[in-house]
């Protein structure tokens, strides 16, 4: 740096690049390092994502938000006790706690076409931000289609595959799991929707379909609801979910979707 220039961060001459990508381009520098503002902006985004991972799902608040749907609502927990166990042992997050299994068995009744599971996953923040708005659109549409809807199951410390056990216990033809996705730095509130036909423990991930990145700044709930309804209808028509369905739904799902999550929540 010239001796006569004051030690202020150099503004990047490429700021116009920012309009072309959500990536953190043209950040400027001071010496080799990021300017103060960028360091702190990054720290703030990381905190939101970290807090989302450790947030607790407020089941009572969710009950209030969903009351208008007039659905039977039931709660379950996975076998993972606490957040640390949940993060270390994904296998436990895929199984019901003994208590929850017993209580679901008691509700088995006559089965249904579809059971919806609302799960905290890796971001309770995402559930609070998006689940009610999405269900407000989905539930009436499902009823209009004439599909029978089982209870809405609110699941905590849950992974996607917990829906398999829930769906099987309630004798559902299909299960839809709405779950908080692994928070990204710019998307701590992203909800994922996973659809599995013929739910039962042991289903593999390639037997599911996913609509991802459901949030205000991503795939907004009305578009997400359309994509999910299309998948439900196709899945019932073909009697399967999974890879075969994926290819043709790509045009619908791609809008704002984040297709390459390395692993499910």
């Amino acid at each position: 740096m010239n001796d006569d220039t004051p030690p202020v961060p150099r503004i990047d001459p490429w700021t116009m690049l920012r309009e072309l990508t959500p990536a953190r381009v043209a950040l400027g520098r001071t010496g080799a390092s990021l300017p103060t503002h960028e360091i702190l902006r990054f720290g703030h985004a990381h905190s939101l994502a970290r807090d989302a991972v450790h947030a607790t799902l407020d089941v009572q608040a969710l009950r209030r938000d969903l009351a208008v749907l007039d659905c039977d609502l039931t709660e379950v927990r996975s076998a993972a006790e606490g957040r640390t166990a949940y993060l270390r042992r994904p296998d436990l997050g895929r199984r019901l706690s003994d208590e929850s299994r017993i209580s679901l068995d008691a509700k088995r009744a006559s089965g249904s076409d579809l059971v919806i599971v609302v799960a905290d996953g890796l971001s309770a923040t995402a559930v609070h931000a998006n689940a009610a708005a999405l269900l407000d659109l989905l539930v009436p549409a499902i009823r209009r289609k004439g599909w029978s809807l089982g209870p809405i199951v609110v699941a905590t410390q849950a992974r996607v595959a917990l829906g398999d056990e829930v769906g099987a216990a309630l004798d559902a033809r299909m299960v839809l799991v709405l779950i908080g996705e692994r928070p990204g730095l710019s998307s701590p509130d992203s909800l994922g929707a996973y659809l599995t036909f013929g739910p039962k423990p042991g289903r593999r991930d390639n037997e599911r379909n996913c609509v991802s990145n459901i949030r205000g700044g991503g795939l907004v709930p009305p578009r997400a609801a359309r994509a999910i309804l299309w998948l439900i209808e196709e899945a019932f028509r073909r009697g399967e979910t999974g890879v075969a369905l994926k290819d043709e739904s790509v045009d619908i799902a791609i809008e704002g979707a984040s297709p390459h999550l390395p692993s499910l929540p």
Binding site: P22, A23, R24, V25, F42, S186, S258
Partner: peptide, 9 residues
Amino acid sequence: PGSDDVMLN
């Protein structure tokens, strides 16, 4: 860019 991979999260 800025350590943040906006595709792979």
